[in-house]
Amino acid sequence: MSVTPLAAHLSARPAAFRGRIGRDARSGHYAVPRRYRLHLATADPDCLRIAVTHSLLGLERACPVTFLSAVPDCPDGGHSALRPLYDASAHRYTGPALAPVLSDDWSGRIVSSHGPDIARDLARHFGGGRPALYPCGAESEIEAVERMCAQGIEEAAQRAGAADAEAAERAAALDTLLTTLGVLERGLGAHEHLISDQITAADVELWVALVQLDTVHRHHLDAAAVHRIAGHPALWAYARRLAAHPAFGAHLDLDAIARRHHARCQGLEAAGAAVQILDWESHAADGTAARSQVNRP
């Protein structure tokens, strides 16, 4: 699939730490197996992307994961389990202790809390001999898919379901969402993957966006809008196939996503809440079995 980058910049949640994993000691944080640890709450989409990436790369031994509760337990929206790391990493840090976090077990400090950087560094510096999630020459296409998912799907879906927005604004946002889905539908065609003949980071990005669209955003859309969103058979068949892949389905915890949504959501539920697009639990049966082997709060 050929993807044309959007002009607007990708919006992202501000990250308190933006350290990077490098190739050698001069980079500050060089790649050493079992030096680093991930802290993830997979009900959060940023964390879900990293968890899928981590599993696709088979890094369970090289970079252990600590899974956090779906709903943060601090009043400021942070995780109390992460507070010691944040306090050790920044003098008098006053912000919330958010996931995702990549920490350095050698120093007891945080390397990064920026999801896209973490995923890229795992793939580039621990991915030797493993699937090429960022194939050479495909970086611009992957970045374009990231922008499409962030702006054309997630942001557009939020605006389309915003109860305090004008009807015209909601209609325009829905049109943006449907246009984006249409582009992706035509791009997929009969292909199994988005930009290559194998799974790449673009597939991880799009799959998580589709999970959020069906399990979170549709709750604030009317039924007619959800039926129009569902009218992209190639796209949802693609989402269903990936959900059956253990690296994806193992991290799909629908109950956790629902609890996180209800704890954070300030919008009004609409008729679309009753119109589920995919039966994720059924399609992710293999992944669910794998997830039962992991101790999660």
Rank of each mutant, 00 (worst) to 15 (best):
H9W: 10
L10C: 02
S11K: 00
G22M: 10
A25K: 14
G28T: 01
P33N: 03
H39P: 06
A43L: 08
I50K: 12
V52S: 12
S55T: 05
S55C: 00
G58H: 03
L68Y: 06
S69G: 15
H79Q: 09
P84T: 02
L85E: 02
P100R: 06
D105C: 13
G108R: 12
R109P: 00
I110V: 15
I110M: 06
D121I: 01
G128A: 14
L133D: 13
A144M: 14
A144E: 09
A150W: 02
G152M: 14
Q158M: 07
R159I: 08
A162I: 03
E166D: 15
E166K: 10
A171T: 01
T176A: 12
L177Q: 11
L178T: 05
L178N: 08
T180I: 04
L181W: 14
G187F: 10
D203Y: 00
V208A: 13
Q212R: 12
L213E: 05
V216C: 07
H217S: 10
L221F: 01
D222M: 06
A224M: 09
V226R: 11
L242T: 08
P246F: 08
A250N: 04
D255Y: 09
I257F: 01
I257M: 05
I257C: 07
R260D: 04
H261D: 13
H262S: 11
R264N: 14
G267L: 01
E269T: 10
A274C: 04
L278A: 01
A285L: 02
